[in-house]
Design a binder for these strands. Structure first.
Lengths: 63, 63
DNA sequence: TCTGAATGACAAGCTCGCTTTACATCAATG
DNA sequence: CATTGATGTAAAGCGAGCTTGTCATTCAGA
């Protein structure tokens, strides 16, 4: 799964730690997801959608 | 996470095995997700969205 | 009745998602 | 320089997601 997290986070001007705090996960988790090490769980994907105010399908892309 | 899988599957007239085949997962996984034992991974949630032709957010509900 | 399809559930085992802790690199700023 | 903030990465550990295999129950139909 490809994702647009890095771009979306940059648009908000947030550090990985800022985003991690909003999501209530560790900074390493944010980093691992951004760098494509693994996909987030479904609940975490929903929290990302909420934080960015976007549907899940516009943050994560099939492929 | 609450989900509407049981209803959606019934609308299609599919057995758990039918849905499992389309998703390429085991019948036990479909059953476990329907009965709320755990949430699907994000890639599997995308496959469910594709199979039902619906956005993820209309299949899985925050809660 | 008997059989087969559908469902629910359990166990063991593997990998993935996430944690904490820790260390290294790089850029900017004093 | 020395420091600080942001980022990348790694290791160990735990629970979640998914597998195969198996068994029990229910219900429709020959």
């Amino acid at each position: 799964m490809n994702n647009r997290l890095r771009v979306l986070r940059a648009e908000k001007g947030w550090s990985q730690q800022d985003l991690a705090d909003r999501l209530e996960v560790s900074r390493q988790s944010v980093n691992a997801i951004e760098t494509g090490k693994y996909d987030p769980s479904l609940p975490l994907a929903f929290r990302l959608a909420d934080v960015f105010g976007l549907p899940i399908e516009s943050i994560f892309l099939r492929d």
